[in-house]
């Protein structure tokens, strides 16, 4: 869908993006991650053609990105807002028409979305009369009303209470199911694991990691497991195929976080434990995106 190739963006003394490349596949939810100032917003603005790169190119469905594509992208910036003194309905129509919809078409779709998000009674209200959450909903409608093939959402959940954040999340997933590709930029890692198929991690203007979320997390597996059992403390001697990292428990019910030794397998662990205890649960601990994020950014900063 989007091929980003060797993008460089220089601002006076500061290089915002340095030879950044990535592929965003059609129909996926793509997480663009990174700490503040990593270059996420610069990259997003380049995809939106708000600014142009100094070198490198971007392909939209194989064609070099140009003004024609503007109407096929929906963008929700992090710094967002609406005209304070304009009626909300008119405002949505205006933004929809700027994206190339005819007035009647825009009106039809706006009504549909207002009903869907239950804000139809706000049609004639001015933005300054609305709560923050309401404004965000209206802004979301403005982003998706022209049924863009590519949705670029920069921190879409800020300003929503948990209930409305859930509503918006489901709307995003539904649009994705209908075929929209989503680029999703955020710091909130828990939503990344929940939503994203693939990610790219930017730090200090460079891409330091990218790939499918599952693959990345798997590649960060290090043989750590949580074991819950009933029995006594595990007697540790040289023959145990693992090391204990952490141990808690009482009254014969124990939980152990352990790391399997290099070259050993889960079966070896079970084999060792079976005679000693009644096993309730054994679960692999896969590093969360948050942990990977902190680890990668920390090590690339070092």
């Amino acid at each position: 869908m989007i091929s980003i190739r060797h993008i460089v963006k220089q601002y006076a003394a500061h290089r915002a993006l340095d030879d950044v490349s990535m592929e965003i596949e059609k129909g996926t939810v793509f997480g663009l991650l990174g700490p503040n100032g990593a270059g996420k917003t610069s990259l997003i603005r380049i995809i939106n053609q708000i600014t142009a790169p100094d070198s490198g190119e971007i392909l939209f469905n194989g064609e070099p990105l140009n003004q024609v594509h503007v109407d096929r992208i929906g963008y929700l910036p992090e710094e967002r807002g609406l005209y304070k003194k304009m009626e909300i309905g008119e405002q949505i129509l205006y933004l929809a028409r700027l994206k190339g919809l005819s007035r009647p078409e825009a009106l039809k779709r706006a009504k549909y979305w207002f009903e869907k998000l239950q804000i139809q009674s706000w049609w004639n209200k001015k933005i300054e009369e609305l709560s923050k959450g309401m404004q965000q909903k209206a802004q979301f409608v403005a982003t998706v009303i022209h049924e863009p093939e590519l949705l670029i959402l920069d921190e879409p959940f800020t300003g929503f209470d948990p209930v409305n954040a859930e509503v918006i999340k489901n709307e995003i997933l539904e649009l994705n199911k209908k075929g929209a590709t989503v680029i999703f930029s955020t710091h909130r890692m828990e939503s990344v694991e929940e939503l994203c198929d693939s990610i790219a991690l930017l730090n200090l203007s460079h891409k330091i990691l990218d790939g499918k979320v599952k693959t990345i997390r798997n590649s960060y597996r290090n043989g750590t497991y949580v074991l819950e059992y009933e029995g006594d403390k595990i007697p540790m001697n040289g023959s145990a195929p693992f090391a204990i990292l952490q141990e808690t428990g009482h009254d014969g019910y124990r939980q152990v976080k352990l790391k399997i030794n290099e070259g050993s397998k889960v079966n070896d662990l079970l084999h060792y434990m079976l005679p000693l205890a009644a096993i309730n649960k054994l679960e692999e601990v896969i590093p969360t995106m948050n942990e990977i994020f902190i680890q990668k950014v920390g090590s690339s900063n070092a």
């Binding site: 939106n48 053609q49 708000i50 003004q67 503007v70 109407d71 992208i73 963008y75 929700l76 910036p77 710094e79 967002r80 807002g81 609406l82 005209y83 304070k84 933004l95 700027l98 994206k99 802004q139 403005a142 982003t143």
Partner: peptide, 18 residues
């Protein structure tokens, strides 16, 4: 200034040129 302060400007210039 109004467009800048209300932060709508980025939404608009993702549709039209500045």
């Amino acid at each position: 200034i109004e467009e800048k302060v209300s932060r709508i400007v980025e939404v608009i210039i993702s549709s039209v040129k500045p």
